[in-house]
């Protein structure tokens, strides 16, 4: 049962990351392209981190805080880097 949930979370995370990369490759201009990966990939990594924590909990490794650190770091830095890329795109447009 727990293994089913972990597998579902892993597949969900991979599907979100794949959708974000498809958006990066297919959308028409830079500002719409920015929308795809910055949301979908952080959600994908979030689902994968949840799966990893569940897996280490269910295999008796205890709750590890490294995964939470990775998630926290990514959730803090993703908007910042998206903002900087948007500013760089707006500057190189004109």
């Amino acid at each position: 049962m727990v293994e089913f949930g972990i597998s579902l979370l892993v597949l969900l995370g991979a599907a979100f990351a794949l959708l974000g990369s498809v958006g990066l490759a297919r959308l028409p201009d830079i500002f719409t392209r920015l929308h795809g990966p910055t949301k979908a990939t952080t959600l994908g990594v979030g689902a994968l981190v949840t799966a990893s924590m569940l897996h280490s909990l269910s295999s008796g490794g205890g709750l590890s805080l490294r995964e939470l650190g990775i998630t926290l770091f990514l959730f803090i830095t993703a908007p910042v880097s998206a903002h900087m890329i948007a500013k760089a795109a707006a500057k190189s447009d004109k």
Binding site: I6, V10, S21, L34, T41, I85, S92
Partner: peptide
């Protein structure tokens, strides 16, 4: 086409490789 596109692609590449490494860890 633009430099910002390439930066965005590199950023997404880093995030996807993080996910791939974590998958290996699981």
């Amino acid at each position: 086409p633009s430099r910002a596109d390439r930066i965005l692609a590199l950023d997404t590449l880093a995030i996807n490789s993080i996910a791939l490494v974590m998958l290996r860890g699981i």
